[in-house]
Design a protein around this nucleic acid. Structure first.
Lengths: 208, 208
DNA sequence: GGAAATTAATCAATCGTTTGATTAATTTTG
DNA sequence: CAAAATTAATCAAACGATTGATTAATTTCC
């Protein structure tokens, strides 16, 4: 019985994240969150002050988790191309293992409202961006990469992944495919990685 | 005074589109729409039946406009690469001249809810998708293009543009850029077109 | 005069939040 | 150690405000 102690605080966060992902911030009511988490409505304000407080807390946790993940790659003593390939692999895996959250992030990013959240997401993303920028720029400077529009290449890499996550029907012609199905997701992930690695290799290293 | 006849119906559509783009569907109230359009609240239900009816009508109008725009390209007697380049130019221009709407579309697309809207948007997109698919596939079959993952290439083209629109700060190295500024937008548009055309040329036609 | 357009007023439902009270757990005190 | 005091967690109920929608009356226009 003592071991069965349920952490209501965490239950609220979990339920809220799930609901925010499914129905959006505005589309989710505090009553839904309470019901889904099994907590009383008042607990939401008791722990987080407000509905927005819950949202902010979710974002903070996720972003903190993201930040610590890719840092190591850039320190390895490998070629720029190899670094880029590893980043692509890590990026695709991370995004596609958290598709619902990634969708929510982009949804909030596309809203003019809630500037606090906008800035938070922006900062988190620009971190990944700078990492990729550094790798490509280094590759150009040491002569192993062609001179390209670096920022546009980054938009291509990130945009491709986001596009697959948000509009999977574009990639998957065959019906019955489901990104929630682990088996199907694995296939898509590998296709995405293979495509982006092939694309960047050809585009960045082909002599012309 | 007679000449000053204001079309309330259209005023409602305009106001609603503006507000939906800015604050999302759930985040926009019918009272806001009424106030912004200068119409009485009841007029919304009088003309469109419901709030969702307004949304559906906006989507239908836009989608109809989109559908008639790119059809001609595929009929020209030009090379596959040239066709693709024209499609890219048209696609970038169209999206970036309607950034707010495009954001809203993606926002709604990323919601599990409102399946009616999801299908509508999906259908509208799949038209563009099939057009590009046809061009690339033809190019592969006549030997002018390499064998590639066609759907992934499409995801790359569309995803790149969406990424630029939704997260402009990511693409622009020099801060202070603003997609609402026509001068800046023109520059970004040209960069995007140049990048995507260059990228596809190299990736699809480089012998290897 | 009659159909279409427009209005103010109102509806029940739901929103996020707050309240006062109660229980459970912890700390303080004698 | 145990009684008292304090804090933390939880609850049902209700708050005022806002939601999308509807009514019925009025105005506009042909």
């Amino acid at each position: 019985m003592k071991t069965e102690k349920v952490d209501k605080r965490q239950a609220i966060l979990d339920a809220a994240e799930k609901l925010f992902c499914e129905t959006g911030y505005e589309g989710t009511s505090t009553r839904q969150i309470a019901k889904e988490s099994g907590a009383n409505m008042a607990m939401i304000n008791y722990y987080f002050g407000s509905k927005e407080g819950v949202f902010v807390e979710i974002m903070n946790e996720r972003i903190a988790g993201f930040a610590s993940q890719l840092k190591i790659i850039n320190e390895d003593k490998i070629s720029a191309l190899e670094k880029l390939h590893r980043v692509i692999e890590g990026y695709v895996n991370r995004i596609m293992n958290n598709t619902a959250f990634h969708k929510m992030m982009h949804r909030e990013l596309s809203l003019t409202q809630r500037p606090e959240m906008y800035d938070k997401i922006k900062d988190a993303m620009s971190h990944n961006m700078q990492l990729i920028d550094r790798i490509i720029t280094d590759g150009i400077e040491d002569g192993s990469f062609n001179k390209v529009d670096v920022r546009m290449v980054i938009a291509t890499i990130m945009g491709t992944v986001t596009n697959i996550v948000i509009a999977p029907h574009k990639v998957i012609s065959c019906s019955g495919f489901d990104l929630n199905n682990p088996k199907d997701k694995k296939i898509i992930k590998e296709r995405a990685i293979a495509h982006l690695q092939d694309l960047t290799t050809v585009y960045l290293t082909t002599k012309r």
